[in-house]
Amino acid sequence: EDAPSSDDLEQFAKQFKQRRIKLGFTQADVGLALGTLYGNVFSQTTICRFEALQLSFKNMCKLKPLLNKWLEETDSSS
């Protein structure tokens, strides 16, 4: 699987934040939901840093598919 470019990540982080707010979730909600869904709880700080593009590139790449999946799950259930 190709690693996303930093442009991709930036684009995704923006879209993710907009969708999250529109769906009415806090950063902490998302962190907990990831724990429920995938067994990895993320702190509010981590989600905040992801949205602000302040995580390392490697961590951004790791989180992106999880957050993407969460969006898909959340979209389909709302």
Rank of each mutant, 00 (worst) to 15 (best):
G31S: 13
L23F: 08
Q15H: 10
I21E: 12
S43N: 13
L66E: 00
C61L: 11
N40P: 07
Q15L: 08
E1R: 14
Q44R: 10
I47P: 02
L67Y: 05
K69N: 07
F42A: 10
K69H: 07
F12A: 05
Q44Y: 07
C61H: 06
T45I: 03
D75K: 08
D8F: 04
K14G: 05
K58P: 14
D7R: 10
N40V: 09
L37E: 11
G39S: 07
D8V: 08
Q27D: 01
L9C: 03
L66W: 06
W70H: 05
Q54Y: 01
S6T: 15
E10Y: 07
M60K: 10
K69G: 09
E73L: 11
A28P: 01
S56W: 00
Y38M: 04
K64N: 06
L63Y: 05
L32K: 13
V30F: 04
F25K: 10
T36I: 08
I47N: 01
D8Q: 07
L34A: 05
L9W: 05
L55E: 04
Q54P: 03
V41I: 12
C48I: 14
A13H: 00
N59L: 10
Y38A: 09
C61W: 09
E1F: 14
E1T: 13
T26L: 02
L9D: 02
F25T: 00
R19C: 10
V41P: 13
L53D: 02
L66D: 01
D8P: 01
I47R: 03
V30D: 05
S5P: 13
G35D: 03
D7K: 15
S5W: 08
A33N: 10
E51A: 02
I47S: 02
G24L: 02
A28S: 07
A3M: 15
C61Y: 09
W70A: 02
F57G: 07
Q11V: 11
D2C: 13
I47A: 01
T36S: 14
S76T: 14
L71H: 05
A13K: 05
L37Q: 11
F57C: 05
Q27E: 12
R20E: 01
K17V: 07
V30S: 03
V30A: 05
I21P: 00
D7F: 03
L55G: 04
L32T: 08
T26Q: 08
E10T: 09
P65Q: 04
L71V: 06
A13L: 00
D2F: 14
Q11P: 06
K22F: 06
P4R: 07
R19A: 11
S76H: 08
K58S: 09
T74V: 13
N68F: 08
A3T: 15
V41E: 13
K14W: 05
K62N: 13
E1Y: 13
S43P: 12
F42R: 04
G31T: 10
Q54V: 04
M60W: 01
L63N: 10
Q54G: 07
D29A: 09
E72T: 09
Q18S: 11
T26S: 10
E73A: 11
T26V: 02
E51L: 00
S77Q: 14
D7H: 05
L37C: 15
L67M: 10
E73W: 09
V41G: 12
D29M: 02
R19S: 07
S5K: 13
S5M: 14
Y38C: 11
S43W: 05
G39C: 04
Q18H: 12
L23G: 03
E10K: 06
C48L: 11
N68Y: 09
K17A: 08
F50Y: 10
S78L: 14
C61I: 09
T46M: 13
Q54E: 12
F42S: 05
G24M: 01
C48R: 13
L66G: 01
S43H: 10
T45F: 12
N40L: 07
Q15N: 15
F12L: 03
K22W: 03
L32H: 13
K64S: 05
Q44S: 12
P65R: 08
F50P: 04
A13D: 00
R19P: 01
D75R: 10
T36A: 09
A13W: 00
N68A: 12
G35V: 02
F50V: 03
A28Y: 08
S43M: 03
L67W: 01
F25V: 06
A33D: 04
A13Y: 04
K64H: 09
D75E: 14
A52G: 09
F57V: 09
Q27F: 06
L53W: 04
D29Y: 02
K14R: 08
G24D: 02
Q18F: 06
K62S: 08
V41W: 09
T26H: 09
A3Y: 11
A33I: 06
F16K: 03
D29F: 01
Q18G: 07
